[in-house]
Every structure is written in structure tokens, then in C-alpha cells.
Computed example of a mutant assay.
Amino acid sequence: MIDIESGQSVPRAGALLRAVERYGDTFTGELPLSVVESNSGVHATLDGLFADLTTTRARLDRAAASEGLAVVAAGTAPLARLGTVPTADGDPRYARMADAYRRLADEQLICGVHVHADVPDRDAAVRALCVIAPWLPVLLALSASSPYWLGADTGYASWRTMVWQRWPTAGPPGCFAGAEEYDRMVGELVGSGVIGDPGMIYYDLRPSAHLPTLELRVCDACPRVETVVLIAALHRALVTDALARLDAGGSGCDGNHARLRAATWRAARSGLEGELVDPVTRRPAPAPAVVRRMLRRLRPALEAHGDWEAVRSLAEEALARGSAAERLRTAVAREDLLAGVDRLLADTRGRARPAARPPRPAAKDRAARDDGRAAAGAR
């Protein structure tokens, strides 16, 4: 959530949630009071998901406007300051997390998009982890939208990933023979006291703790709904493809997770504008080539869901536009960080270009003002 005039991230989740409480659990709070979580319904078609997310964002935008706020869907807010975003009020779990993790919780000014895909059972979900994991950095690159942190360019396309990976259970998932072994590991982690509950398993991909799904968690929140739909379709296809390969006698990864973590770092650094680690050759390759290799691999699964043509079109559009991180940097280079916030806001609202703002202060006045300031879960 941002203040509509200053573009600054603000801790006003309570006011916004009260304004949308008639929509039930579509909108919920998060650890920081600058973030509101939006939850879609369950969909079998990409058109249905697109309509749902578009409607949900419009409702949230109208409610935010009534409070003098706006909502941007991005991995980080370009304009934010530490120490100004307290953790959620009245939630004992978040209170315990804030006390236990201190600076990590204080700096949790990030947003991701999570996608749930149905699985036949928990064993299938766990066995699919290693088959899917090498392709997760490609999805991260498609989503990258967080180059700015506390008003400065980090040099990364997804700085959210760097912030997120500091948590003790974040990063690529491990390899497990089945649900029993996985659940035993989760129990041991909770028993160690390092995490407070199974919900704090923050792997990039994990079996849901309460749903018959495999949950994708590696991606930045995406300004454009089209990107969310693309990632959701690719995640479902990755799950479908992995289960088919396992049924045919295939195996997962070789257990070398150092490569997975390195590939994730590469995607966070480069986005779509540089090289990624090709999951097949394990060598660097231009991001468009790796994305298209993934599409070729997943074509049978995409066709089985009727998604091939839509996904191919959305992927080529994403490659042509470039990452949200690069579009944000372009807007900032042309003007300033506030223009970058306007770009994110326009994309979140589904507009081709930012709405016109009132005339800005002269450069000297604007510099003085800037000295005083240092954002879907689709199932």
C-alpha cells in the first residue's frame, strides 16, 4: 500500500481491510501493515483466473482510493523506509514472529505471488518437487519486479528474493522419497524451535499444509495480471509434466542443490534482461532462449489443459516487453522514483500508461521533499 500523493509505502492495512471486509476472506492481512494479501478463487481456465484477478484488483483499488491510498503489485515498494512499517496488530502468530526474528521481520517489506496447483495426493506433491525445482528460476525471472529497495537501485531485478532468502527455511526445496519423509523433516524443524509452525516452511515450492496442492512461492508479485496468469499456467503445466515423468519411471534432481540456489540468484540478478542458467545444459543462456526451451518441454502439458496458444502468446509478449523491473527502471531513468511508482500503479490497474499527475514541484523543492522519504495469490 502506498500513499497516493507521496508514493511512499504506508502501514495502513487495517483501514483498507475494513473497507473491503464485505468481500469475506478475499483480502487478508500479512506480517507487515503495509501489505494486503489478495486471494483468488479456484479456476480451471486462464480466462476465469484473469477475470477474477482483474475484478479483485479493481475492488481493492477503489477501496484504497477512498482512504487516500493506492495499491501496487510488486516485489518491493520503490519508496519505503525501515522502522515505519510495524507488524500486524492483534495477530499472536505474527507477534511471535516479530519477536523471534527481529530484523528479518522488520525488513519484510516484500510481496510475492503464490500459485496453488492441484495434485492427486501429498506423496505425488513431494515427489514432484525435484522434477520441477530446476525450472523455478525461470518463473522468477518472468516475475521480477523489485529492483528498488529503500529508494535505491539494488542492481537486481528481484531484490525481494535476496531479502526473502535470509529466512531459515527459504530457498529451493529438498529431495524427499515421499510425504512421510517430508512431514518428518517439517516436524523436526518445528521441534528444533527454529520455526514456529509448518506454515513457516518457506521453500520456493512446497506441498500446501492445508490443501491438496503444490504451492509455488518463488515469484515476485506482478504488476500485470497477464504475468500472473502466465505464471499460473506454467506452474500447472510444470506439475502436470512432473507427474507424467514420474509415472513413466523418471527421477528427480541429483540432490545438488547448490546449483539450484545459484540459478535462483542468477534469475534474481538478471531477470529477463540477462542470462539465466539453462536447467538442461546447466550453462548460461539468454533468458528468452531458456523461456522458449521451457515452453517446448511443457507443450504437451499445456495442450492438455488447452493453454498452449495463450501461454505462447503471453510468453512472447512478456519477452518483448521485458521484465517489470526493467520497465520500472526505464520510468525512473526518464524522470524519478515517483514516476516509477506511477508506472507500477498503472500496470497494477491494467492501464497502458500512467495517469497524469498534477504538476510536480520544481527540482529544488522536489529534492527537499524526497529527503523526507527514504505490494495475488492465485489458486
Rank of each mutant, 00 (worst) to 15 (best):
D3G: 07
I4L: 14
G7N: 07
R12T: 10
E21G: 04
Y23L: 13
G24N: 11
G24P: 09
D25T: 14
G29K: 02
P32F: 01
L33Q: 15
S38I: 13
N39M: 10
G41I: 07
H43C: 11
L46A: 15
L46F: 06
G48I: 10
L49K: 01
E67G: 02
A70F: 02
V71M: 11
A77W: 01
A80D: 12
L82S: 15
T84P: 03
T84L: 13
V85K: 09
D91Y: 02
D91N: 14
R93T: 08
A95C: 03
V113G: 03
H116M: 08
A124Q: 11
R127P: 02
A128C: 04
L129F: 03
L129D: 00
C130R: 05
P147A: 08
A157L: 06
R166P: 08
A170G: 12
A170S: 15
P173C: 06
C175E: 09
D183M: 10
L189Y: 07
V190H: 04
G191L: 09
S192W: 02
P198Y: 02
M200V: 01
P207I: 10
A209K: 06
R217P: 11
V225I: 15
E226W: 04
I231D: 00
H235Y: 04
R236H: 12
R236M: 05
A237T: 03
V239R: 00
A242D: 03
L243M: 04
G249P: 02
G250I: 06
S251Y: 02
D254W: 03
L260K: 00
W265N: 06
A267I: 10
A268F: 03
R269G: 03
G271H: 04
G271E: 07
E273K: 10
E275P: 08
E275W: 13
P279F: 09
V280S: 10
V280G: 04
P286A: 14
V290K: 00
R292W: 10
M294A: 15
R296K: 13
L298H: 06
P300D: 13
A301V: 10
L302R: 01
R312G: 09
R312A: 15
R312V: 12
E317L: 13
S323R: 02
L337N: 01
L337V: 09
G340P: 01
D342T: 04
D342R: 11
P359Q: 07
P361F: 09
A362W: 07
A367D: 12
A368V: 09
R369G: 05
D370L: 12
D370H: 06
A376T: 12
G377D: 14
R379V: 13
